[in-house]
Amino acid sequence: MKKLLCALTLAFSVISAAFATPPATFSEAKVVAKQKIYLDQANSALGELYCGCKWTWVGKSGGRIDPESCGYQTRKQQNRAERTEWEHIVPAWTLGNQRQCWKSGGRENCVDKDPVFRAMEANLFNLYPSVGEVNGDRSNFNYGMASGVAPQYGQCTTRVDFNQRAAEPRDEVKGLVARTTFYMFDRYKLNMSRQQQQLLMAWDKQHPVSAWEKERNRRIAAVMGHSNPFVTGERHWTQGYKPVGDGVVSNIAASPARAASQATLASAGTSGLIIGNQKSHVYHLASGCPGYAQVSAKNQVTFASEVEAQAAGYRKAGNCK
């Protein structure tokens, strides 16, 4: 019986991964993150990433911060202090700076020309709602110790050392940001300094995986098709760890579910994928839609079927015949 249950669990995991469809762009990822990962977390005890503030959802993926819920006080940027923003736990600059596309034209060039960067930028494991002002202050700084910095945001214990270009998150999320960083560097084969490794390994040990982190991992895995192995315990980061890089190839290729759908379309004689515009959330068919070839590369999202496009919140262009 035990062997049968294990086999069924494994089979279910394989099937779930096969039918998972990760978001293709950062804009799409923010909407998916709200709907499938954090929708019920706006009033949770943990709150947003850096200060533990509660928030109210606004629009497709935005939020309005409740400063009284966390004792937040604005440091300088009132507009950003009032809203949530989607923080890349590993900054987009860090992700892109180790790729040729960034050196050739920065983030916009990477979004246009590098499918691996687009996958990194849209990776749900790396996204978390945060107070916009702290997100802006953190900028592209590495996580580090800021013990000599006085409180900057009222009762919020996250601190940013602008001189040393380092950000120290509150204790409640230090383990989560460490294991997320390990995952991103491992999956996309990035280089991490010895000092950074030592600090994050210490946080990983001092702050074990929480019940919410396990649940977050489960929710994201249902969309991405895989778990964070540093949360599940399948992998452990040690000094000198050699990143695997399993996302460098797998995130470029079509997911098994999408590949199967494409094969079905091909056998049915339907040519071309459906192209969606991630700004307007309108999709175009290869046949009968004048705008099919007019969507700019950086705004394109492809779907294997109209059902898939509509499930992602897209609607057919009005000028399709």
Rank of each mutant, 00 (worst) to 15 (best):
Y72Q: 01
W57T: 04
G136F: 03
L190Q: 14
G276F: 04
V177P: 02
Q294N: 13
E168L: 05
F182A: 07
E213A: 11
K214V: 12
V307Y: 11
M145H: 10
P151K: 04
D204G: 05
A297S: 13
G105T: 03
L46F: 08
S250E: 09
Y188G: 08
L39F: 15
A202N: 11
R216L: 09
R80D: 14
R159K: 15
A24F: 03
A263W: 08
I220Q: 01
M120R: 01
N163L: 12
F230H: 09
M120S: 05
N123Q: 10
R80P: 05
S261T: 12
H281N: 13
I274K: 00
V116G: 00
Q41V: 12
S27V: 13
P129A: 10
R258A: 09
Q155H: 12
V31I: 15
G313H: 03
E215A: 11
C289T: 02
V295G: 00
R258C: 04
T238M: 05
K279E: 13
G288Y: 10
A122T: 07
A122G: 12
M201K: 03
N251P: 01
Y143V: 04
A253P: 00
L265Q: 12
W55P: 02
A45V: 15
K113G: 06
D40N: 13
V160N: 07
K54W: 08
A166E: 10
I275H: 02
S130C: 10
A119L: 02
R165V: 13
S61G: 09
L46Y: 05
Q35N: 15
M120L: 02
N299P: 06
S305C: 09
I220D: 08
S271T: 14
D112V: 10
A317Y: 06
T158G: 04
S147P: 06
F26L: 09
A24T: 11
R258V: 13
E215N: 11
Y38W: 15
E308D: 06
L8E: 09
F141G: 08
N135V: 05
L49R: 00
Y128M: 13
N191S: 14
Q78D: 13
W212Y: 15
F117K: 05
L285N: 07
N228F: 06
A119W: 05
H236Y: 09
R118W: 00
A33N: 11
S27D: 13
G247M: 07
H236I: 13
A266F: 12
V231P: 04
G106I: 02
N135L: 05
H226D: 11
K321E: 11
E108Y: 09
A29G: 07
V32A: 09
